[in-house]
Design a protein around this nucleic acid. Structure first.
Lengths: 90, 90
DNA sequence: CACTATGAATAAGA
DNA sequence: TCTTATTCATAGTG
């Protein structure tokens, strides 16, 4: 009725199990990220792509990068945004 | 000799405690991020700024898309990314 | 999606 | 740092 032993650190082959584990662990990871930001006054940015390509994201403030399907990054200022993209491109 | 109760979810006022907690939880968070990537075949990007402004980062691959999967905007190198983020965060 | 036994993380203390 | 008492996360199940 619970886990039988230590968790093996390798890709889960079963597709269904992998998706379920992904949902659960993703939730746990985002919770931890949030807690770190709050408890320790840190800035945190977390981006996760599911195997299916769906994006999940968290940022502790507007000064951390967020991915947006349309704009690539959500930045405080458009000018900064352009500059950042230019730098990245080279 | 161990925790005395439930952890309160708010900023830790004591500077020393906050730094110790930050180190421990940061390590835990990065481990979880790594595990999610390996176990569930996901792409993960994690950025953390300490209160002192120091950056810690993880990406499940050097080509972790930080944006639209269609554009597949890849990072040239972690160092470049760090530099850009520092500029942008201030 | 809820439950629960068990492994893991971690807050304090040393 | 290292240890240990506890809380917390979560794998397997219903």
């Amino acid at each position: 009725m619970a886990r039988r032993g230590r968790v093996e650190l390798r890709r889960i082959e079963d597709r269904t199990s992998r998706q379920v584990r992904f949902s659960k662990r993703r939730a746990g990871l985002f919770k931890k990220a949030f807690e770190l930001a709050v408890l320790c006054d840190a800035e945190v940015s977390l981006l996760v792509f599911s195997p299916a390509g769906r994006l999940y994201e968290y940022a502790s403030s507007r000064c951390m990068p967020l991915a947006d399907p349309r704009t690539l990054f959500c930045l405080p200022a458009p000018s900064t945004y352009s500059l950042l993209l230019c730098n990245f491109a080279q």
